[in-house]
């Protein structure tokens, strides 16, 4: 039995006519790094804002360590947020930013100074205390934003796409750093992203959101190798969804076979081929109109558009219809 620190019960939220959250349930374990993964507009940021108290749920309950905080004001919740684009106070120095929450809590000057120093060294920005946010790079601001929220030692730290504004190289580096920070702080992280690579690299568990519902909640391995729904399979694994006899199968593009005699039982036409990231991607159309993408490292380059051939696959995972409905609802 895991220790549940935060529980979301049947949370519903609508903005105007749009039902953003359709009654979600989620249990978050103490000390875990859980990621809410989904494309934009799926409701992940709204979920986070409801936990932080910046948005009021229409229905349902938010339970933090057994206490119902559904309608508590943001400043009375033991959770803190690292905002998208950081939201550092531009009129305060780095040290004042980090010390803001401590000052509100009327801690002594000495204690504030000491904790700010501690946080600065934890995020490896010793000596930056007297600078202003506009004198920092994006990556540095990011660390300060995390330090500002984490210094209060909240029960849960909420991170809203904190790496979204950084370039790819810095993002990879910060992923490792965030993971290290989470380990050394021992705080529960709820992390939001639309980047499946980020989610898989950092998370203990991933909750995949689509149109206001969770499609699947599980470890990165479960999500990647045992997708439950077609949405999860295509969003996380870049898988083809193949329909046969009223059933849905997920077929990863790297598992699509070409020219191999035994499994290649499907007649197909080459529609497109392209190179991306050292891979050849070939889009096939099957005789029943379904489309399948295959990706390979540099081989089968002779395949020409319009060519007829037989394809097949070894690994096909049966999945359910996606829960969140299709994009046409938007």
């Amino acid at each position: 039995m895991k220790d549940i620190i935060l529980r979301l019960e049947n949370i519903k939220k609508a903005f105007g006519d749009t039902q953003v959250l359709k009654g979600i349930h989620l249990e978050i374990h103490r000390g875990e790094f859980i990621t809410l993964l989904g494309s934009s507009g799926c409701g992940k940021t709204t979920t986070l804002r409801i936990i932080a108290g910046l948005e009021d749920a229409d229905e349902g309950r938010v339970i933090l360590e057994g206490e119902d905080i559904t309608h508590a004001v943001p400043n009375k919740r033991d959770v803190n947020t690292v905002f998208q684009n950081y939201a550092l106070f531009p009129h305060m120095t780095v040290a004042e930013n980090i010390g803001y929450g401590l000052k509100i809590r009327k801690k002594s000057k000495e204690e504030i100074r000491r904790k700010v120093e501690e946080m600065l060294s934890l995020v490896q920005l010793e000596g930056f205390g007297d600078r202003y946010p506009d004198q920092l790079s994006g990556g540095q601001r990011q660390r300060i934003a995390i330090a500002r929220a984490a210094v209060l030692e909240p029960k849960v730290l909420l991170l809203d796409e904190p790496l979204g504004a950084l370039d790819l190289k810095l993002r990879r580096q910060m992923q490792l750093e965030l993971k290290r920070l989470q380990k050394s702080l021992g705080i529960t992280f709820i992390y939001i992203t639309h980047d499946q690579e980020e989610a898989i690299n950092m998370s203990d568990r991933i909750a995949i959101m689509n149109h206001g519902v969770f499609e699947q909640i599980g470890t990165p391995n479960e999500i990647y190798y045992h997708p439950e729904t077609s949405y999860v399979a295509s969003f996380v694994g870049d898988a083809n969804i193949y329909r046969e006899d009223g059933k849905l199968y997920a077929v990863r593009s790297e598992n699509v076979l070409i020219h191999e005699e035994e499994e290649c039982t499907h007649e197909a036409v080459v529609l497109e081929k392209s190179f991306a990231g050292g891979q050849l991607r070939i889009l096939f159309e099957l005789s029943d109109g379904q489309r399948i993408t295959a990706s390979r490292y540099g081989i089968d380059a002779e395949v020409a558009v319009g060519q007829r051939m037989k394809i097949g696959w070894k690994v096909a995972v049966e999945v359910k219809e996606q829960k969140g409905g299709s994009d046409e609802e938007d």
Partner: peptide, 14 residues
């Protein structure tokens, strides 16, 4: 940026 006010509330300010 109104998010700065939200950040202040989030950090414990009334």
């Amino acid at each position: 940026d109104y998010r700065l006010v939200e950040a202040a509330r989030d950090l414990g300010a009334s």
